[in-house]
């Protein structure tokens, strides 16, 4: 499915609708260049899961931000600072898999090969200053 959005708010709305269908246990690899709106998309996911979207911020530095106040736990990973992939072993990724929540990963390409095969891909393409194509 492809969606064109014209503002961060529309991107959030697409993500929120997408989140409503999630059952728990999903792993979502979220790709897109710097400034594409990946964290914005996760804010929408949070909204759809009943997590306060204000609590969602970039985990680039801390690698993982966990949200437990929604319909399902939301594990927001960001592997921006990783280089080899093997660093994933230093994170609680395995524990999050067991928790049957929703795992969403920014910069999954940095750990390519370390993600389970059932990982779903979502990409955000930049078409213009505000225009985005989201492929779900």
């Amino acid at each position: 499915m492809k969606k064109i959005t014209k503002s961060p708010e529309e991107t959030k709305a697409v993500a929120s609708l997408f989140a409503e269908k999630l059952k728990g246990g999903e792993i979502i690899a979220l790709t897109g260049p710097l400034g594409a709106g990946k964290t914005v998309f996760v804010k929408g996911l949070a909204r759809g899961l009943g997590v306060s979207e204000k609590k969602v911020r970039s985990p680039s530095f801390v690698i993982l931000i966990e949200h437990y106040h929604g319909r399902l736990p939301l594990f927001h990973f960001d592997f921006y600072r990783f280089e080899k992939g093997a660093e994933i072993d230093t994170t609680p990724f395995e524990d999050c898999l067991k928790a049957k929540g929703v795992i969403v990963i920014e910069w999954p390409e940095r750990i390519a090969g370390y993600l389970p095969p059932e990982t779903r891909k979502v990409s955000i393409e930049v078409l213009g200053r505000k225009l985005r194509r989201i492929v779900l």
Binding site: L34, V40, K54, R57, S58, S60, F61
Partner: peptide, 14 residues
């Protein structure tokens, strides 16, 4: 107050 998205230092790095 806090940041609603990126941290200041993270923005410098990016």
């Amino acid at each position: 107050g806090e940041t609603r998205d990126d941290a200041a230092g993270e923005t410098f790095d990016k």
